[in-house]
Structures are given as structure tokens and as C-alpha cells.
Design a protein around this nucleic acid. Structure first.
Lengths: 253, 253
DNA sequence: CGATCCGTTGAGGTGCGTCAACGGGAGTGG
DNA sequence: CCACTCCCGTTGACGCACCTCAACGGATCG
């Protein structure tokens, strides 16, 4: 079995030359702002150079589709700057957001020949694009990279399992509280402050992530604000006023 | 970074000698019944032998706990025979089943030092047990095994994302129909017949897997039976009478 | 300054949960 | 062999958490 089977791509067609992004340019991975966060953190100078040769940096506007569910999975991406949402749709338009991504996050992993979800920017974003075939070749040569990809995937799997518990068994209030805590936790992981949590996504996006409606999200947030657990700030920020209480509310204690 | 970091295990204590299973014995992987299904399918004769040296086959009764959420993640397992459920609990006892496993399935993957969920047998089962440290050493030596583990993990991630869509956005009827279709699909993958689908789990387990209650599961199944889409058979089997209709109902068409 | 989008709030409806009862099968013990 | 218990699945009655539908205000934009 070749490493090509690892992230899909049964057939190897020509590389698409045209880009979907509004801006395009060769990437200099060595100087990358998110190098320490991303998959590439495990690479040494030589391999970083090889990565730079296959990577391409693209600029996307807010609300732009990076790829759609069912598209041929030709490339993988790293978020350099901005924010991205991933979602799946039902035939009648119901939507489930399966993840929000920020700087350093990886996306586009597909074992099949097509993407299993749609990726769309929340804000203006810069993404690093790796043609799949070339990245797979690099993976084959660099075990550490292969291993890091495994770690990232396993981490996402664990997060997905937490989200299953949330979606299947938590109440609206518990969902909102868990969501805020998770956002705060991720902010810390990225080296930001834990407390005023920034929400780059709309109420509709939050609703589709938590299996609720926008109205329920709005009402629940209002209720948390009224009871003094949180308070709303300028620029889509939420201040966690009572962390202990928020933690309790997140698990129904 | 050592491969030891890959599937967790910061500290390497002594191997626990005692087994939790009711029966115990050295494994002969070469003659393993599920070898073609399992992770081990990619190994050659030499590596299979090495695997056999670290593997141990254990017998479990129905309803026995293999490991619990929070336990030190000392080992990984392969289901040789039987069926297993994986679940997470909230403090007040609400439960979310995150997966059902059958012969050939792999379990126990943990990036942290402890398991993130509980594993419990549904029926009497035989499991192959791999001490984590030893398996990690083998992974380090055998890239194909490492790669196969990645493939398995990525496949599970995709399934988890499908389940998020189900839990967050589907109605009770859609959930039940999707569940039956998924069971049928998996049966085919394992070389069994697609149609009379065998359900080794209780209504309560199905409910906790789909984010419903036992009553709703029961009512919905009754309704599908009444409308002639399915029919119940001996021994926890369900016959899919109208596959097209079931597919339509699974996505709300 | 109209149009559009987003967030909020209210009023009312409903899908599913809760509570309760019942029947059948399996295990147990006399 | 029968009684007894326990567990599981089913069904009914009812309630509620959340959805649906609707209206409104503020922000952004052409």
C-alpha cells in the first residue's frame, strides 16, 4: 500500500493550476507565522524547505467557500490567518457545523476521493494550500510529518466524541456554556487570553454547531447575561464573569 | 518526539500482569480469525510474529467493562469476536454512546494518559490486548502499521462527523432509519448479508447512541413496522422490507 | 434612505421526554 | 413443576424544552 492511499486520491490527475482564492502566492514556510502551531511544527529546516516548494498561500474573503462537500479532494490546507467553518448539509438544507478553525488548524483530510464536508471562511482569511499528491509524497519521506498528522487526526476524533456527547445529551444551556468554555480553552492554547472570548461566527453558525436554532442561542445567551454569568462586550466578545458557575452549568451540576 | 507520544502514555510504569478478562491466553496472530479485517491486515509474516509476542487474547462476559473513562490508558485492543459499546457519561448519569464495535474493530486509542470513554461488552466477547508501550515500539518500527492506524483513525473521524449531523439535525425517525442503514452497510463490509440486520444492543443502547429515549426508539420502530418499511424477526433481527423508502426516510426526503 | 442582514424578543405549537403501567421472557428457588 | 422477581420492550397520557412564526431595532451598504 502506498502512502497515496492514506489520504485518499485513488487516481492522480493533473494538478489544477487555477486558484479559487482571491490572492495567490508562493509560500515561505520558514517565515510562516503559524509554523509553531501547525502540522509543520515538527519539521526541520530541510523539510520545511521542501514543504515551501509545494505550498501556496491564498487569500480568501469572508464567506468564501474553500471547497464543497463532494468536490474532488485535491488539496489539504492550513489556516494561516482568519477563521473557517466546516459543515455538512441535509438535502432539505438543514446544516450541521462540525468544526470552527483558526490560525494553525489543518483541514481537508479525506480518505475518500471527495471531501465529506464544506469549508467556508468566517472572516477574511489566509490559507496555505498543499496539493494532495505532493503532500502525500512528503508524508512518505518524513515519518515525523506522518506521525504529526496522525496526532492531529486523533485529537480531532476526541473532540468529535465530546461534541457527540454535547449534541446528543446536553440541554441548550449546557451546550452554550460548554461552547464558551471550549472557545476560551482554545484561545489559551493559541496563546491568547482566556477571558474575553472572541466569537467570529454568527448566531446562526453557533446554532448549527450546537444543534439549536438562532432564537434559542440568543435567548440562552441573554439568560446567562441576565443571571450575571457572562457579559457581552464590544466586537463580538463575551466576558466570562463567573467561571465556576459556567463550568457547573456546562455539565448540569 | 518519540512514537510514545503518539498514542499517549507520558509515563511508562510496569506492565500490569493481571487480566480483567475471565479467560486469558497468548495470541497467535498468524491464525487470527479477524486478521484480514483488523489493523494487522497490513503486516507481513515477520511483523505478525512480533505482534503475536505482545498480544494477549482475553475472554469477556456480556456486560463486562473493558476499561473506564479516566482509567490509565495502558493498552489498546482489537475485537476478535463479540460486540462492544463505547460511551461517555455526564455527572448526573446521562450517557452518550459514541460507537458500537464488532469483530475486527480497534479500540483504546488515547492521546492523553487516560481513556476518554468507557468500553463495555454487549455480548460475550474475545479481545486481543496490546500493551501500549510495546505496540508503540512496534509502530515505530513498522511504518505500514503506523499508517494503517492513521487510516483507521481518519475513518472513525469521518464517521463521527456523520454522527454529529445525525445527532444535531435529524429527527427521531431519520435517526432510526440512518442507524439501520448504517448497521446494514457495516454488515456488508464485514462480509455478512445486508438485509436481516442483527442488533446486538438493547433499546436503551440504541437510544443513548442516537440521542433519544428508549420509549421514542420503541415507538419509532413500531411506526416503521406499521408502515411496512421494516419487519421484526427472531433474535433481534430487523428485515428491511423497503430499502428505498428507508433511505428516503433517513434524510427527510 | 431604502434594502438587507443580524440579533433579539414574544406568542404559540410540537416532537420528544417524562412518568406510569403492563406483558413476556429469563433466571431463581422452592 | 410452578411462583416470584427482574429486566426489557411496548404503549399510553401528559408536560415541557425547544422549534416555528412573526415582529422589530440597529448596523451596514449601495
Amino acid at each position: 500500500m502506498s502512502p497515496f492511499d492514506s489520504i485518499g486520491c485513488g487516481e492522480a490527475g493533473t494538478e489544477p493550476g487555477a486558484e479559487t482564492g482571491t490572492g495567490t502566492g508562493a509560500a515561505s514556510c520558514s517565515a510562516c507565522a503559524v509554523r509553531s502551531l501547525a502540522l509543520c511544527a515538527v519539521l526541520d529546516a530541510v523539510d520545511i524547505k521542501r514543504l515551501g516548494e509545494i505550498a501556496q498561500s491564498d487569500r480568501y474573503e469572508a464567506g468564501q467557500t474553500i471547497f464543497s462537500e463532494g468536490d474532488p479532494a485535491d488539496a489539504l490546507f492550513n489556516v494561516v490567518a482568519g477563521a473557517v467553518k466546516l459543515y455538512k448539509l441535509l438535502p432539505d438544507g438543514r446544516r450541521q457545523i462540525i468544526g470552527f478553525l483558526a490560525s494553525g488548524d489543518f483541514l481537508g483530510l479525506a480518505l475518500a476521493e471527495t471531501y465529506a464536508f464544506t469549508a467556508e471562511t468566517l472572516t477574511g482569511s489566509t490559507l496555505c494550500r498543499f496539493p494532495r499528491r505532493r503532500l502525500e509524497a512528503l508524508l512518505h519521506d518524513v515519518p515525523r510529518l506522518q506521525h504529526q498528522l496522525f496526532v492531529v487526526t486523533a485529537t480531532e476524533l476526541a473532540a468529535a466524541q465530546d461534541q457527540m456527547l454535547l449534541l446528543g445529551r446536553k440541554t441548550a444551556r449546557e451546550k452554550i456554556c460548554s461552547f464558551l468554555l471550549a472557545l476560551s480553552h482554545r484561545a489559551v492554547q493559541r496563546g491568547h487570553k482566556a477571558n474575553p472570548v472572541f466569537l467570529p461566527m454568527s448566531r446562526a453558525d453557533i446554532a448549527d454547531y450546537l444543534g439549536l436554532t438562532t432564537e434559542t442561542v440568543s435567548r440562552t445567551v441573554t439568560q446567562l447575561k441576565t443571571t450575571g454569568v457572562i457579559s457581552l462586550q464590544e466586537g463580538n466578545r463575551i466576558l466570562i464573569a463567573d467561571l465556576d458557575e459556567l463550568c457547573d452549568l456546562a455539565e448540569g451540576t
